[in-house]
Design a protein around this nucleic acid. Structure first.
Length: 212
DNA sequence: AAGAAGTGCAACCGCCGACGG
DNA sequence: GCCGTCGGCGGTTGCACTTCT
């Protein structure tokens, strides 16, 4: 049995108060992120380090872009999800100012439903013939087209390589998945392929996929 | 108007890989 | 090589809020 990350008896849980937020923000702006385990005590917070880290990353970081997702962000999430699967941190890394938690929540609450409504299986981005879908979606072609125009004919990256455990697909593999798809589609001569995975002038390239 | 059902999102939990001793 | 610790990640939960009946 793994030890808890902190003594739970002495820590607050649940929603953060304004005072707690302020303490955490003040401390990090002054001292930097440093060691999350010791940060709560140093900052005078009765929280565990993980909780502080999460709060900072998902809510307090000054570079966060809050509010609704733009259409291009939405489109990019769908494309990236087709390539990467549920690798929210990688996907979020392509969306400046967005967090993995935010992207994950947005996917689960909005995009999943949107795809389902369009008759697309959100798990593999294939048209799902079992699902009812609007008349304009009733294609007879064997082509499978995602919401974003990304054609997927024989399985997406994550479908072909189901997630066994975290870390089983490294960034190089992810890049390969992208290039494989691209190569495959190009060889098929699909004209409307759009693999230009960019937002905010950050292209989805092999280099930029790498985690710093 | 009130209760039920649905939705959105912040936060927690537990697992995993990296890293240092 | 082994072990313990830490940070990071994805899945899940809990709850406030909104919409529906």
């Amino acid at each position: 049995m793994r030890k808890p990350c902190c003594d739970k008896q002495d820590t607050n849980k649940g929603a953060w108060s304004k005072q707690e937020d302020q303490k955490l923000m003040d401390y990090i702006l002054k001292h930097g992120e440093g060691c999350w385990r010791t940060l709560p005590q140093a900052a005078g917070l009765l929280r565990c380090g993980k909780s502080c880290r999460l709060r900072w990353i998902n809510y307090l970081r000054p570079d966060l872009k809050r509010g609704n997702f733009a259409e291009d962000e939405e489109d990019l999430i769908i494309k990236l999800h087709a390539l990467l699967g549920n690798r929210w941190s990688l996907i979020a890394g392509r969306l400046p100012g967005r967090t993995d938690n935010e992207v994950k929540n947005y996917w689960n609450s909005h995009l999943r439903r949107k795809l389902i409504n369009m008759g697309i299986d959100p798990n593999n981005h294939h048209l799902n013939r079992n699902l009812p879908r609007p008349p304009h979606m009733n294609k007879t072609s064997s082509d499978v087209t995602t919401l974003s125009g990304l054609k997927l004919s024989s399985g997406t990256a994550h479908e072909q390589q189901p997630v066994k455990s975290r870390g089983d697909i490294n960034c190089d593999q992810v890049s390969d998945a992208g290039s494989c798809l691209e190569a495959e589609y190009n060889s098929c001569g699909l004209p409307d392929l759009n693999l230009d995975l960019t937002i905010g002038n950050i292209p989805f390239t092999h280099e930029s996929t790498r985690v710093e």
